[in-house]
């Protein structure tokens, strides 16, 4: 059965949430025959077509395994639903290098009402891309942001995945468990970019959580990152801090120039896709990474990622030819 990308895009623009599975099935397809339809769909929900950025709030949630991301996500989902927001979750898990297979276990840990049509959860395997995001995740997130109020991209990791998630999300929340010093070290050493919101889980642990929160505050201050909110939450009943976290996420978005952040993200992503396709040789043809970024900054802001990548490829081919 051939899918009609125009119809999918129309339903997304009309806010028809039931279209989400079909959108994902298409966007995830690597079949050559589907590529044209994917490009058409993405173009039809691009800022150029929408007359502005997609309205949904793109929220990245990341952190080390065991930090309590899934439990937190359950609580956040309920919070957003209470505030009347529709929510799509893209839960990204790593793929096995050896078999290419993946265990996508998060769904089992997120507790939602199956009858609630305003919640959509899709597990995605990261595939071969290093850094934690499935190739189709960014495209899916932007497409869903045309219909859903909130689109969450959840990934596992510390150190690298934040960088890539920051290229997709309007707001990045890093989840840390009290007592684990890794995140603090990563932030201090500059391995990890400074998140927009830091979430300390297991606030019910009391003292330990309070200390973790204080340490993170101090570290952020010493780095001059006073704007980063640090919120302590407990997802266990009685849940604490969830409302504050929801407020902090919204406050960050309110204070962010979303169009320029997303524009920057699109350009960086086009470059990443280009490098994936053309490798170091392609990058050399563009005069190196910095030159490529500079050139991208001069392109039309309305271009979507696919068009940008094609433009890069043409430029590289011209330089090589």
């Amino acid at each position: 059965m051939a899918v009609d990308p125009a119809a999918l895009a129309r339903r997304l623009r009309d806010g028809d949430l039931t279209v989400a599975p079909a959108v994902l099935n298409l966007v995830e397809s690597r079949a050559p025959k589907d590529q044209e339809a994917i490009a058409a769909l993405l173009a039809a929900v691009s800022p150029a077509a929408l007359g502005g950025e997609a309205p949904g709030h793109l929220v990245g949630v990341t952190g080390p395994p065991g930090a309590g991301k899934s439990t937190l996500l359950s609580a956040l989902l309920h919070g957003w639903r209470e505030r009347g927001r529709s929510v799509a979750v893209l839960a990204v898990d790593p793929s096995s290098k050896r078999s290419g297979g993946a265990l996508l276990g998060d769904r089992a840990r997120i507790d939602v009402d199956p009858a609630d049509r305003a919640v959509f959860i899709r597990s995605m395997a990261a595939g071969e891309r290093l850094g934690g995001l499935a190739p189709a995740t960014r495209a899916a997130a932007h497409a869903l942001a045309a219909a859903f109020d909130v689109v969450v991209i959840e990934t596992v990791g510390v150190g690298q995945s934040e960088t890539e998630i920051a290229e997709v999300a309007d707001t990045v929340a890093v989840v840390v468990q009290p007592g684990s010093g890794d995140t603090l070290q990563f932030i201090k050493s500059g391995i990890m970019e400074i998140p927009d919101v830091l979430v300390v889980t297991k606030a019910d642990l009391g003292q330990v959580a309070t200390r973790a929160r204080r340490d993170l505050h101090a570290a952020l201050r010493s780095l001059g990152a006073r704007g980063t909110a640090v919120v302590a939450v407990s997802s266990l009943p009685p849940a604490q801090g969830i409302d504050r976290l929801l407020d902090a996420l919204e406050a960050h978005r309110g204070a962010t120039d979303v169009p320029s952040r997303r524009l920057q993200a699109r350009r960086l992503h086009a470059l990443a896709d280009f490098v994936e396709e053309h490798g170091a040789r392609g990058l050399r043809a563009l005069g190196g990474r910095r030159a490529a970024e500079k050139w991208l900054a001069t392109t039309d802001p309305a271009l979507d990622v696919g068009s940008l990548e094609r433009a890069l490829a043409e430029r590289a081919a011209a330089a090589a030819g």
């Binding site: 793929s95 096995s96 297979g101 265990l103 276990g105 089992a108």
Partner: peptide
């Protein structure tokens, strides 16, 4: 679930 992953499938374990 584990065997399907090892066989190279994407497994949503519910």
């Amino acid at each position: 679930a584990v065997a399907a992953r090892d066989a190279g499938m994407e497994v949503v374990y519910e």
